[in-house]
Structures are given as structure tokens and as C-alpha cells.
Amino acid sequence: MNKLLSLAAAAALTLTSFTAYAAGGALVPPEMPWPSVGYFGAFDKASLQRGLKVYTEVCSGCHSLRLLSYRDLGDLGYSNAEVKAYAAEYEVLSEPNKDGDRVLIQASSADKFVSPYANEQEARALNSGALPPDLSLIVKARNRGKGNFFANFYDMLRGRGYASGADYVYALMTGYGDPPADVEIAEGMHYNKWFVGNAIAMAQPIYKADPAADGTPGTIEQQAKDIASFLMWASEPRFEERRAMGTKVLLFIALFIIVLYMLKRRVWRDVH
């Protein structure tokens, strides 16, 4: 009987775990060893800083990061003065001045990241009709899992969180190349192994660069890793707070379970 019940319970639990998007049949990018995944993972601040540099020098020409504020950069290990100096490179519209005009003034650390285009129409007009997506949530929005229920379930238990979105960003950055002989890529489009349909409007954004100041090599792979890490952080800047609190809460509940189990045994000792 108990066997039957546990079977039924297992079935019920399995039902609950069906992530709806498991289908799709899209290519599954290979898994990358992100330092922030797992139960005790943490961001590599140096990598995030290099990633910010890649965003600033490469991505920000076309992609906005509109949900992030300059002040959030303090979490990457920058001082207030550094954050201010970074923000000061950008301009935002002021409140109406005494003449009723809104003029461009230096951005402050309280401002949101300045977008490269004023609106969607301008973005499309300057990119032959394609819209470069906002990157603030791109890692969470591309967290499509592995296309298979059991692999996703296993990833969940390992605490990979939304890391499959970062896998995708990395794969996309490193997936450019010449199309196979049998694939025709339209004019103005580019072949990418990991993009749905393989034809992407964005040209290869990252090329080999000089090594960073700290000696990190400027390979495409290294830069792709840094920008994916940075965007992973940008998708949920409170991630480390969540992870730290989670460890404490789960530990507390585990202890509480033990206490309650002993209490229950003791209370029920005399019941037959």
C-alpha cells in the first residue's frame, strides 16, 4: 500500500515539475562552468568588470540596458567616485529648465543606463529593420533549459538557476563562422550556429582584443565569458543576496525539521 502511495505522490510531484517550455527542439548550447552557479557560487567580480567593459565598448552601441542603474555598478566593486565618473560619460535629458527646455546634462549615478536609441522606431531605422533587444533581462529571457525535462530537473537540483541563459549568450557570441555549403544566408544577415534559424542580423560583435590590464587574454572566448557573466549579474543584481539568505533559511528549516520530527515521535510515543 505504502508503495502505491509513494508512487502516486511521485507521479503528482512529477506533474508539478513540468516546465512548460521543455519543448521547442531548439539547439541546446553547451553548458559552461559559471562561477555563480551551485549552492555556494559567487560572481567573479573581475570578470564582471571586464564584462562591463565589453558592454560599454561593444554592445552599448546598439543594445540598451535600460533596467540597470549606474549606481548598481557599486556591486561590481567600483567606488562611488568611479561609478559617478562612468555615469558622467553619458547624457540624459534634464527636467524642464526655466525656459521650459529640456537640455542634455551629465548623467548621475541615480540614472538608469542610457539607451543608444530614443525609441524602437529609431533603433529599427538604424539597423535595417531589426531591433537589437534590451539586454537587462536577456539571460533570464533566454533561460530555455535543455529541452528535456530530466536534464532541466537535474540542473535545478544542482542550483544552476538561470545559467542556461548565460550558456546561450556565450554560445551566440562564439557561434559565428562561415555557413556550411548547403546553407544560404540572405544579404545583410550573418551565419550563427546557435541562433534559431542560423541567420542573425547582428554581425559578429566580438573580435580578438589586447589582453586586459590584469593580464587576462583578449580571446573571443574570454570576452564572451565575461559579457555573459556580466549580463547574468545584470538580469538579477540581487542574486548574491538571495543566495546568501537562501543558505541560511534552508539550514534553519532543516534544523527545524529535525526538532519537529523528534517532537512528533515523542508526542506520538503512546498512541496505538
Binding site: Y21, G161, T247, L263
Partner: peptide, 26 residues
């Protein structure tokens, strides 16, 4: 209380470790 706490452990696991697992990335 014991059963509830086991249940809350699963709840907390989802909240802190896999909060987007049962959601949809889109």
C-alpha cells in the same frame, strides 16, 4: 507541523535556489 516544515523546505528551495524553474523565460 513536521509535515508543514518539510513542505516549507521545498517551498524555500524553489524561492531561493530555483525561483524561475516553474515559470517561463518569455
Amino acid at each position: 507541523s513536521f509535515g508543514l516544515m518539510v513542505f516549507l523546505f521545498v517551498f524555500a528551495f524553489f524561492v531561493f535556489i530555483a525561483p524561475n524553474y516553474m515559470g517561463h523565460p518569455d
